[in-house]
Design a protein around this nucleic acid. Sequence first.
DNA 1: CGCGACGTTGATTTGCCTCAACGATTGTGG
DNA 2: CCACAATCGTTGAGGCAAATCAACGTCGCG
Lengths: 192, 192
Amino acid sequence: MEPILQNVARHIQLNSTEIEFFLSLLEPRSLKSKQLLLEEGKICKYSTFVLSGCLKGFTIDKNGFEHILSFATTGWWIADMYSLITQQPGQLNIQASSPSEVLLLSKTNQDNLYREVPKFERFFRILTENSLVASQQRVVDNLSLSAEDRYRHFCEKYPSLVQTLPQKEIASYIGVTPEFFSKMRSRLLKGR
Amino acid sequence: MEPILQNVARHIQLNSTEIEFFLSLLEPRSLKSKQLLLEEGKICKYSTFVLSGCLKGFTIDKNGFEHILSFATTGWWIADMYSLITQQPGQLNIQASSPSEVLLLSKTNQDNLYREVPKFERFFRILTENSLVASQQRVVDNLSLSAEDRYRHFCEKYPSLVQTLPQKEIASYIGVTPEFFSKMRSRLLKGR
DNA sequence: CGCGACGTTGATTTGCCTCAACGATTGTGG
DNA sequence: CCACAATCGTTGAGGCAAATCAACGTCGCG
């Protein structure tokens, strides 16, 4: 449980009562590799904090191909924001890429938390701002960079993920096919 | 000044003192068409609320091409979120597409506002959440849709912009060249 | 009026995709 | 513990969506 308190402490300070209350709202859960936490078409009921392992959020297009919107490893939050906010069915799947330990904060508990400890408005505002910055950077990258440059950016930004993720998932994240990704990578290794 | 109060009232309720205080933090400004509000490489010091007209946020790539990250018309907010949050130089330009009236909320006033009227944490959290949803949807669209489908989505989502914006700006937003956009459009008009 | 931005159209090129075949690795049930 | 299937990554041939380059008509504006 400690990691999430560190995560919170980066942005707001809590007294022990508030800590107790916050922790009481979290539901621990273990996920096996490939286990689904949220399925396309369902309503997203939880914000998920990752204690260990790795989750991915992705959509399936009309041809059955997977497109990864986000990864979440230790210390990251993940959810289908659209569905969580609107409580409408979303298009996102959330799945464990590897065996993972997570903490779930339900939508209703999150609303309670805002009511009881308004400081959390600030906390989640800041988290959301950071996600927005990352997401907008990705839009800009998609508009202005070649696949090769997007891959280089990805390597700089998430060096640890580059080591651990299967190549097809990196390919999906940066928006190319696994075949093209493989060719691109060998081109880069052979120095251009 | 009323429009911004309506905008705020969608999410939080203020008493008259709070309204006074909030309004006192805003700086009105008129922009001529093509006037720059923020330049690439500068530090973003303001959140901007649009009263009338239209602004755009964009980057210039290494080949000198413009890529539009966001539009903001009446009732919308715009800023270089990365630069605003970190107070580091950003890569975004913000410019009036047409003559515009805006209200500026400086970073320091925004911080004061959070301190004096914590309800605004909630307000901007919700705004940011909505922006994040839109931005993530755009990432998914870029990953999974053809240019034609992205254009269709754009028409559904922003029917008023489709009428008013020059075609090259729509092209830039959805991520194609003006030439290709023109061909695509005439293809669609001639019914496939 | 004349210049510069915009939109259109055509010819050609290219970055990335599709499909297919193949070895290497993983994992899974018998 | 092995056999076999499934998944992953690699490589090659060919195809397509979108970019590039260039030429031209139109229009709004100084």
